[in-house]
Design a protein around this nucleic acid. Structure first.
Lengths: 215, 215
DNA sequence: ACCTGAACACCGTTCAAGT
DNA sequence: ACCTGAACACCGTTCAAGT
């Protein structure tokens, strides 16, 4: 599977090839050697154009994040958080290599920061203080990442030295169903709503009489 | 660091050595070769007593889970879930190799099933239906795993090709603080409470008049 | 029965050398 | 300037051979 041609090697071409490779196979991990081979070049040739594998994987991650169109910032905050979670899960499901990036190193790539910014904007409008907005986004992001880890883990070989697929083993399998993702996500978002409500009570809105019951 | 002696090789001795090795260094990954060397034996000698590396790591995981004493099942469900989360985080922090196990394959080891069982018991008493009890436990487990992944990731080398530690990069760093762990955990548990409340309203208890507010 | 040596098929990365 | 060859320091695992 040579992707190479007459064009000279460059950082852009390398990242492009990495994106292609990590998209087609559901390969857990891209290898420098495999990437080099696909480009028809020795592994070491890559190192003139990129710092190391991490450098490439961050670029891939940033690109994949940028390729997703975020919902409008006019979206209500709860919906917005939910949709960000769905987008992230879609990405991590289709590209486990990116999941590995999040699990192995901090991801402060531009597109990740942009996403945080957008979330903070929407949450702030929704009544969150700036600090809590970051926290709320982080909580949802954290949950999503955990879910995708478990989901990926389940995709790998099952079983082992355990006796057999007991009923409880089946329950553990149910940790990564679609409904379970929704259940956990709803729980967090409901919890965040509670927090907003408490803040609203502590710092009551001037115009309304009964703000103790809410959506 | 030879841990070997005159005793013959056995599954028990191998797992014991693996436990010791993965405890002392904060080594992300135990290697078969390193383990063999520590035991004063060739790597292949291990394969007569264990199936493969996965086999060893599951045994290590089970052992670490068993070493933790769970809170009493008389504990209120919200507290119980919180304490399970704290225990899990303590484990995954001190032994990143176990984090890797959860991230790479389903963990249906006896101690993991026991933990699920205990949680289901407590949650059922707290008013959860059996199915929702599993879901609630799974949600908290999922969040905890995600948090520990991010926490571990932050422990690895920071930075990269990004320009500098901007204010937003610092915000991303705040995803893995102690307070943030609490914040997310509280959000989920609050959300679960909402669920219980809704269920209580949909299916009202016969004997009490005002059951809409509770612990 | 239990362990070893050599090998297979991999990794990421460095460093001196070639063109 | 750009790429290569050989090497370093690793992986998990198999398979035939030794004792």
């Amino acid at each position: 599977m040579r992707l190479s041609s007459t064009e000279p090697l460059s950082r852009a071409r390398i990242v492009e090839a990495a994106l292609r490779l990590s998209a087609e196979g559901t390969l857990e991990e891209l290898s420098m050697r495999g990437l080099a081979e696909a480009m028809g070049v020795t592994p070491m040739a890559l190192y003139r154009h990129v710092a190391d594998k991490d450098d490439i994987m961050l670029a891939v991650t940033n690109e994949r994040l940028e390729q997703q169109t975020l919902p409008s910032t006019d979206t209500p905050w709860a919906t917005y958080l939910r949709e960000l979670a769905l987008l992230m899960r879609a990405l991590l499901r289709s590209e486990p290599a990116v999941l590995g990036v999040f699990a192995r190193r901090p991801v402060t790539v531009p597109a990740a920061l942009a996403r945080l910014d957008a979330a903070v904007t929407v949450l702030t409008r929704g009544g969150f203080e700036a600090r809590d907005a970051v926290r709320a986004y982080a909580a949802v992001h954290t949950y999503t990442l955990g879910f995708c880890s478990l989901e990926f883990a389940r995709g790998q070989r099952v079983g082992g030295h355990e006796v057999g697929l007991s009923e409880r083993a089946a329950q553990i399998a149910s940790f990564v169903t679609e409904t379970q993702f929704e259940y956990g996500l709803n729980s967090i978002i409901d919890g965040l709503k509670t927090g907003v409500a408490e803040r609203a009570i502590a710092d009551p809105p001037a115009l309304q009489k009964d703000a103790s019951k809410h959506a």
